[in-house]
Design a protein around this nucleic acid. Structure first.
Length: 212
DNA sequence: TATACGATCACCT
DNA sequence: GGTGATCGTATAC
């Protein structure tokens, strides 16, 4: 009887993987961004599962942040950022690539975390096929690359990421604060003084980073 | 309706 | 280092 119970406990421990919930994302965007590092991004399609450990993110916060799409105000495109935290904001960039964000903070306050890079863990063969390259360090090391590798398109825009399908983030042990590096964000030179904000966060020494 | 441009990437010199 | 691909969105007309 005792043995049976112990087995159950051990079994439960092994299989339990919790999905990050709304309360995780409904906080200050910098805290959410930093704590997303080291977590596992999961993408499920009808026939494939892709996963990767988040290694690089950027924070985009409010209408005053000139790099944030919400600086243009509330439009059809940015509407999702004014909605519930934990939902996906996916947009098309340069007419050919997609970028994946997770909405943060409270309803009516537009903010999100852009996922810029992951370390691929599951579904690598499919990522290689999607990206047409076998270089593991070139599969998911960029916002457009990881969306192409993990088959994230506009279909995922607005998806509630706190459910087990088709897109969510698994909780993992928190990484040490000292392993997080902050720099200015990539590709936002147009954003005047906001371009200088150190709102890009990545895991120091990770080989799965978009740019040094 | 028309136009300018981008939270990128691959390929070129 | 530089440039072209390619199209939805915002904005000007």
């Amino acid at each position: 009887m005792v043995l049976h119970s112990l087995c159950n406990i051990a079994y439960t421990h092994v299989v339990m993987k919790t999905i990050l919930q709304k309360n995780f994302f409904a906080r200050n965007t910098h805290i959410v961004a930093r704590q997303m590092l080291g977590k596992t991004l999961v993408r499920k399609t009808n026939d494939t599962i892709y996963t990767g450990i988040i290694t690089e993110v950027e924070a985009y916060i409010g209408e005053d942040d000139l790099a944030c799409h919400a600086s243009k105000g509330r439009t059809k495109r940015t509407e999702i950022m004014y909605g519930d935290p934990g939902h996906a904001y996916v947009y098309l960039i340069y007419g050919m690539y997609h970028c994946l964000n997770v909405v943060t903070e409270g309803k009516e306050f537009p903010a999100a975390v852009l996922i810029r890079a992951v370390e691929p863990t599951v579904g690598i063969a499919d990522m290689i096929r999607n990206r047409n390259t076998s270089n593991i360090h070139n599969l998911t090391t960029g916002p457009g690359k990881l969306c192409q590798a993990m088959d994230v398109t506009l279909d995922a825009n607005g998806v509630d990421m706190t459910h087990a399908f088709p897109l969510y983030i698994e909780n993992e042990k928190e990484i040490p604060e000292g392993t997080i590096h902050a720099t200015t964000r990539i590709g936002v030179a147009y954003a005047k003084h906001c371009a200088n904000y150190p709102w890009r966060y990545y895991i120091k020494d990770s080989p799965f980073i978009s740019k040094k």
